[in-house]
């Protein structure tokens, strides 16, 4: 591998016109054994996760633990406020009961789970990100419009300036560009 190239450049970007073309390219790159690569699309393409070999997203764990935290927080808060710290008898009802506390805990479960989901998604995606080499490229701006891009990073152990370019050409891309870091 050429040391100069790997320092200055981010990766090879190949442009495709349809999701079908990008998906076939993705399957061939997956089968070639690349690791640091991605497909960028204007909308989620059905079946692309399988074509890329991406496993099921773990966001659900964040949601689950967020929800559990919300429910527990609610129960503890209400017990502390109405049953422990300042006891007020209302209508002869018990000072604390999980039944009257339930509606509030139900809402807090959802509130905390929703925050955890969004934060978890951002964490897993390493977002927000203020700078990305791809976003400097003028042609890449069409990724949010109507074009599909396959990106293979130069940091990938399998990357080779000639072979990788050839692989993307074989996959049917008519525009391949080396993007700087």
């Amino acid at each position: 591998m050429n040391a100069n190239v790997s320092i200055q450049s981010y990766g090879l970007v190949a442009e495709f016109d349809t999701p079908g073309d990008a998906m076939r390219a993705a399957s061939s790159i997956r089968d070639a054994g690349f690791r640091k690569w991605d497909v960028h699309t204007p909308f989620p393409v059905h079946g692309l996760d399988a074509a890329m070999g991406i496993k099921n997203s773990p966001v659900g764990w964040f949601t689950f633990f967020g929800g559990c935290t919300g429910y527990t927080t609610g129960m503890l808060m209400i017990w502390f406020m109405n049953g422990f710290d300042y006891k007020i008898v209302v209508g002869g009802k018990p000072l604390f009961s999980p039944f009257y506390a339930f509606p509030v805990c139900y809402e807090l479960t959802i509130l905390f789970a929703a925050f955890a989901t969004l934060i978890g998604m951002c964490f897993l995606n390493r977002l927000p990100r203020l700078y990305h080499p791809l976003l400097k490229n003028r042609r890449f701006a069409a990724v949010t419009h109507d074009k599909f891009f396959v990106v293979i990073e130069t940091a990938d152990p399998k990357y080779s300036p000639v072979e990788t370019r050839k692989l993307l050409e074989t996959a049917g891309s008519r525009h391949i560009e080396l993007i700087e870091e």
Binding site: H40, V59, G60, R129, L135, T144
Partner: peptide
Amino acid sequence: ALGWTGSNRHWSNYEKAYLLL
């Protein structure tokens, strides 16, 4: 936009998060 690049690895987590929401 938080630096969104339309990455499919991002879409994968994003779609799951959207479904859960």
